[in-house]
Design a protein around this nucleic acid. Structure first.
Lengths: 252, 252
DNA sequence: GCAAAAGTGTTCGGGCTACACCCATGG
DNA sequence: CCATGGGTGTAGCCCGAACACTTTTGC
């Protein structure tokens, strides 16, 4: 049986400012290889699988600063045109500023998800500036006493494979879960950041606007104020904060 | 590379009554094969991996009523004495009353977790009536800005393999998460049940006593009252309830 | 009557939401 | 001076925790 590992790599990048004076807006991004597939790695027989994954990320981006966790193992032969039969996916969060090098074939695509009213179908547009990849995903929910089962289907044809679309979908769901229960949000940012930057990470992952005053209070125990002050916009400068290492939550 | 699938199968059984008049107490149980290992299945190249897992459970227990979800894929060669190099684990919840048949080599072990005060070490005792398997698990937590990493280690020697111990540990953690966010609790019970039975499922999974009055209110939207009344104990009979199919939550 | 379990109601506090309001900045 | 972002305070609401209390049953 042939096994492959692959990565769903998320990052958050600043878009162009709408107005010189205003804040930069962040976008959630994902890395695709040039053939619209996810970056892969080989699972060596002699190496701890997570170590293989970590080593590959270090090799690809020449940094050891990133978040990584196992996402899911896929084994539906229908998804494949290749002869791989099992794919172990790792979810990675990386701050672009830590990337020292990257294969030419990789590009970061902005993720835009539309059709939010219709929860069972999502229109996704991936955009790397040069190329746009569009697709629709249906979510079918089967509920009964024994189970709640989600099945995702790619609707129609797309440049992207069904498995890739489903992995992106599953990855975003995992991010949404993790951002509420862990400190993953900080992995998107520099060591020191403005609260508004952190809020933007929450907003792009949860895909909704948050009230700044309330957000500030909610994340207060997770952060520490530094004595540094930086101007993000043309307006009042903000203090820089860091992650509070003493913060403990019942991480799941 | 050699791949195996295996199962961490949970069930809840009634213990002996302490007093004829009192309620039966439930115990969380797990299935082990006779060599203290977890039941396995073969991952066929031609079959959807989840289907392989489901088919095997159906074959082993002669029922199609069970809950199943993928738990994790393990690949640390240190864990193995055998020549398997990758193990995909599925978590299964089964109500014993639905089991029509079972291999002789399987037994259900009660799970007792002690040393609760010391959160970083757990004493586990598995007991099937005839045999007791004891072991200790250490949880090492590494926290930093990029990650919160849990590493579990089997302390000392045990009749159970380290991977098996870790899978049980991980399975219980998953159950705890799922019981708060999904309807898995109902998979342990008959279609119709008393609220106290449901509460016992929550209690054995969360490993703490709950206040009946509050529990009742909390789960009220998830259940429907039937007109059936049954005596569980020698005292006031309870109404039977069923899962409310209309109940919708943001299942993760 | 009593103990245990089924079931209802009330109070309290913490956390989230909404929102008013202040300060700081530069165009 | 005004738009925008940084930052504080407060009032209302919902939900969970604690607990008092009633009802039902068998011994």
């Amino acid at each position: 049986m042939k096994i492959k590992g692959n990565f769903i790599i998320f990052s958050a990048d600043n878009e162009e400012r709408k107005d010189v004076r205003r804040l930069k807006e962040k976008k959630l991004q994902v890395v695709l290889d040039k053939n619209n597939s996810l970056p892969t790695f080989d699972i060596s027989n002699k190496e701890y699988i997570k170590k293989s994954a970590e080593n590959q990320i270090e090799l690809l981006f020449k940094t050891n600063k990133f978040y990584i966790e196992q996402l899911y193992t896929w084994g539906d032969p229908e998804y494949y045109t290749s002869n791989t039969e099992l794919t172990v996916t790792y979810l990675v969060i990386i701050n672009k500023k830590n990337i020292k090098n990257m294969p030419d074939s990789f590009t970061f695509y902005d993720i835009n998800i539309e059709n939010k009213e219709k929860a069972n179908q999502q229109d996704v547009i991936l955009n790397n500036g040069e190329k746009k990849i569009q697709y629709k995903i249906d979510t079918i929910i089967k509920r009964n006493r024994e189970n709640v089962e989600y099945t995702n289907k790619l609707v129609g044809k797309s440049e992207i494979s069904e498995l890739t679309a489903i992995i992106i979908h599953t990855g975003i769901k995992r991010l949404r879960n993790r951002i509420e229960n862990t400190n993953i949000a900080f992995s998107f940012l520099d060591k020191e950041f403005a609260i508004s930057e952190l809020q933007q990470i929450y907003e792009i992952i949860l895909d909704k606007k948050l009230v700044a005053a309330n957000f500030r209070k909610k994340i207060d125990p997770m952060i520490k104020k530094t004595d540094k002050v930086v101007k993000e916009s043309a307006y009042r400068p903000s203090s820089r904060y860091t992650f509070n290492d003493e913060f403990i939550r019942n991480w799941v």
